[in-house]
Design a protein around this nucleic acid. Structure first.
Lengths: 121, 121
DNA sequence: CGGTATCCCAGATGATACTG
DNA sequence: CAGTATCATCTGGGATACCG
């Protein structure tokens, strides 16, 4: 495996490169929330528990730059802003599913030491 | 999706839980290096470019605690320490492959703005 | 050979408040 | 409704040195 540089950052492997696109606490929840179709900012925020405006904005801008998500403004009254997955974003879904499956397996194996929480919405 | 707690940490999704097992810069390179069979510390270090002793140690201890990797001491002359994937570690390989595939796709798409590096070993 | 122990920083994330 | 701005904090990982 060769090292490579993209936008001033060094990567050591394809996995590391993939993680730049879907890594971090919030990118995957955002992508999953959009996997059933476009959503408005407010709906997105409601769909993702715990996320703050700052993190939602940061991640949406970042996902736009990475061409995983599009932002479309509809000039209505009141105006509407919709976010949707790009084809590239859709291509990330299988990897995310594989991670979710692994997570489920691990959760099952560790179930004895996991405590479930009621969410306070 | 319900929140849950494991070893004093809150998780919001199975994906996040999976990332606790294979996330970070070095866990995946370590797991991949062991995917063809057990290796000694020194071989592992040679197999993973750029990794420092500190990070290799930290990650190996962590992977042991998470039961992804076993550490076996052979009392020979000189003594030998071997690391190997557990069954749980092997179960992580498909998710890692999916990420590697996604990374390859993204690298191809971005190839115009990627500069390959010769590695200075 | 196969590790440990400190110290430290940058960047990711959180809290809180404000805006057109 | 759809964001921005500011400040505080937390943590992964690097540098460096030492140990049985």
């Amino acid at each position: 495996m060769e090292d490579f540089i993209h936008q001033n950052r060094v990567y050591y492997s394809p996995v590391e490169f993939a993680m730049a696109y879907i890594g971090g606490t919030w990118k995957i929840p955002v992508i999953l929330a959009l996997s059933d179709g476009p959503l408005r900012y407010g709906d997105l925020k409601n769909a993702i528990p715990h996320i703050t405006d700052k993190m939602l904005n940061t991640q949406l801008r970042d996902l736009e730059k990475k061409q995983m998500v599009t932002r479309t403004i509809y000039r209505e009254k009141p105006p509407r802003v919709e976010y949707a997955l790009t084809e590239r974003g859709i291509k990330a879904l299988p990897a995310i599913s594989a991670l979710a499956h692994l997570g489920d397996v691990l959760i099952t194996q560790e179930s004895a030491s996991i405590k479930k929480l009621k969410r306070e919405d």
